[in-house]
C-alpha cells in the first residue's frame, strides 16, 4: 500500500483496518500525532488528509485516499506555520500532549474560515480535549493566528 505523508511517499505492508495513527507512529516513526483515546473522542491524533482534519486513531489506513499532513509537515521550528507561531506567542502548551492535535484542528479550521467568531471557534475546537485546561489560551491563539493568516 502507498501512503503520502508530508510530501513523502511510503510503501507499507499492513492490514487495511489498522488505524492510520498506528501506521504513522509505529510503522513510519512519525510521532507528532498522539494516542489519547483511540475512539475519536480526544483529538490528540488529528492529522490532515487533503487539508481536512481527521481523527487518525479511527481512520482505517485502507480508507485513506489523499495526501496526509501531520504536525511535522505543517511547519517546523525554523519555518513555523502561523498557527504554531501563535501557539508559541500565547504559550498555550502545558504538558503539550494534546497540542499537536489542537494545532492541526485549528489549522484546518482557519483554512476554511478566515474570520471566525467566538462561537465558530467554540464549535470547531470542542472536538479536541485538553486535560491541562489550556482552552483560554487556545481561544486567544486562534484569534492571533487568524489575524496573521488574513495578513492583518
Amino acid at each position: 500500500m502507498q501512503l503520502s505523508v508530508n510530501g513523502k511517499s511510503y510503501d507499507i505492508d499492513v492490514e487495511d483496518d489498522m488505524p492510520l495513527l498506528w501506521v504513522l507512529r509505529d510503522e513510519l516513526g512519525i510521532h507528532g500525532p498522539k494516542y489519547g483515546c483511540g475512539i475519536a473522542q480526544c483529538g490528540a491524533c488529528t492529522v490532515h488528509i487533503d487539508g481536512e482534519a481527521v481523527r487518525s486513531c479511527s481512520y482505517a489506513v485502507g480508507d485513506v485516499q489523499g495526501a496526509i499532513t501531520t504536525i511535522e509537515g505543517l511547519g517546523t521550528p525554523d519555518a513555523l506555520h502561523a498557527v504554531q507561531a501563535a501557539w508559541i506567542t500565547h504559550q498555550v502548551a502545558q504538558c503539550g500532549y494534546c497540542q499537536s492535535g489542537q494545532i492541526m484542528e485549528a489549522a484546518a479550521f482557519l483554512a476554511g474560515n478566515a474570520n471566525p467568531t467566538d462561537t465558530d471557534i467554540d464549535d470547531a475546537m470542542s472536538s479536541n480535549l485538553c486535560r491541562c485546561g489550556t482552552y483560554p489560551r487556545i481561544r486567544a491563539a486562534i484569534k492571533t493566528a487568524a489575524a496573521t493568516l488574513r495578513g492583518a
Binding site: 510521532h31 507528532g32 498522539k34 504536525i71 511535522e72 504559550q91 503539550g96 499537536s100
Partner: peptide, 20 residues
C-alpha cells in the same frame, strides 16, 4: 518563554510514549 514551548508547538517534543 518556557524552554519546551517551541517543541510542544511543533510536534517535536518527545514524550515517554514516543521512545524508540
Amino acid at each position: 518563554q518556557r524552554v519546551d514551548i517551541v517543541a510542544k508547538s511543533t510536534g517535536t517534543q518527545s514524550y515517554g510514549i514516543d521512545t524508540v
